[in-house]
Design a protein around this nucleic acid. Structure first.
Lengths: 206, 206
DNA sequence: CTTAGCTCTAAGCAACCGCTTAGTATGGAG
DNA sequence: CTCCATACTAAGCGGTTGCTTAGAGCTAAG
């Protein structure tokens, strides 16, 4: 019998494995699910606590406020996706951009629950916390831009507007978190591969 | 002196011109601004009323509930963007897809306030209202797909996965509402033109 | 065993929420 | 003028919100 309302095993565990103690992690995972499902403002601290199988007051043992829960999710989520994007390898700019887009888009599908909170609940962060996360977002953009710029320098990409193309590529990947449904036909890997193809078509020379 | 908190002239007026009486329209425009700014759930009926320069109770003279305000916005917003996408003209599939993407992406920039509510607050609609709007969204997808399919039939596009490509194109345009800022360098028209270029690159034959 | 410290719950507080009610001002019809 | 419908406000109701308080249960060091 599962009294927490959370699956016994979840992909979310992978992202939040480092969070301790156990109850704090369960609370965080419950918050991710609730925020992703209904949005930050529509989620009550009672929702989170009951998803985690605890009393409403238990939230405040591990977190100062509901907003701090969101900040923790947002911070770890951004750090994870930046780390993922920074670890891209491949032989030549074409391979690297292919891997970058496949990985980044695929992450937004596979971890769409986390990604939804990361991408669409930024506005609920306090100004200080928002600024901290914004810096990570700038680094993510810079990484993606450098993968495209590399191909331009190598002469294998034709990109009239580097900043605009970067924006479009990131936008494409990020929006996966909005429309992706696990019940859909495509797997996260297939979405990643398809998007990598589409992006390479966008930047290939005439 | 402006006591309503709304600009004397606003692009929003264009979309909501048909809404009467005057107070009902002002209330609706105030709701669009508040919902776009903070999200549906973070907006109180007092916020809306005070933006419209009226008392909290005045909301309920013209609308049954806060959700009905959202539904009105969502319905008119979807109908407007569907009408826009349906009116696309052009000589040949290349021109038509170019116009379609430029128009649709441009609308999401120019009317980003409305578009944000339309695209990101669907989840706050009642099940009945959501179903009604979902039908319009299906028609929008079908329109965009047909513009791409036309080019495939004409033999001027190379699209391995029609449904996937349609999804990506719509996704690209819709996400403009998330990142667009009027203070940015690009005008809505420039964004539309750039996106039309990127999309045509995506579907052009090798 | 005692005791300190951590984790948790039951109960509840002040503030705020969506929405309603009672009543006022206005303007046009008869 | 009276009468009535419409559009609005002041006040407030019941319920919910984020968060706090007081205290219980458990663990482990001394």
């Amino acid at each position: 019998m599962n009294t927490t309302g959370l699956d016994g095993f979840s992909l979310l565990d992978e992202t939040w494995r480092a969070v301790t103690p156990d109850a704090a992690r369960r609370m965080l995972i419950a918050a991710v699910q609730a925020f992703a499902d209904k949005g930050y403002h529509a989620t009550t601290t009672r929702d989170i606590a009951s998803l985690a199988g605890m009393s409403p007051a238990a939230v405040y043992i591990h977190y100062r406020s509901k907003e701090e829960l969101l900040f923790n999710i947002s911070l770890v989520g951004h750090e994870t996706s930046l780390a993922l994007l920074s670890s891209i390898q491949g032989d030549g700019a074409v391979q690297r951009l292919r891997n970058a887009v496949a990985t980044f888009a695929g992450w937004h599908a596979e971890f769409h629950t986390t990604a939804r909170v990361v991408q669409y609940e930024l506005g609920a962060l306090s100004p200080e916390h928002h600024a901290e996360v914004a810096e990570l977002r700038r680094q993510i953009e810079q990484r993606m831009r450098s993968y495209i710029a590399d191909g331009v320098e190598e002469g294998v990409f034709d990109v009239p507007d580097l900043k605009g193309a970067t924006l479009a590529v990131l936008s494409l990947c990020i929006d996966v978190a909005r429309w992706y449904q696990p019940s859909g036909k495509r797997t996260p890997d297939e979405i990643g591969a398809m998007y990598a193809d589409l992006v390479l078509r966008m930047v290939r020379p005439t």
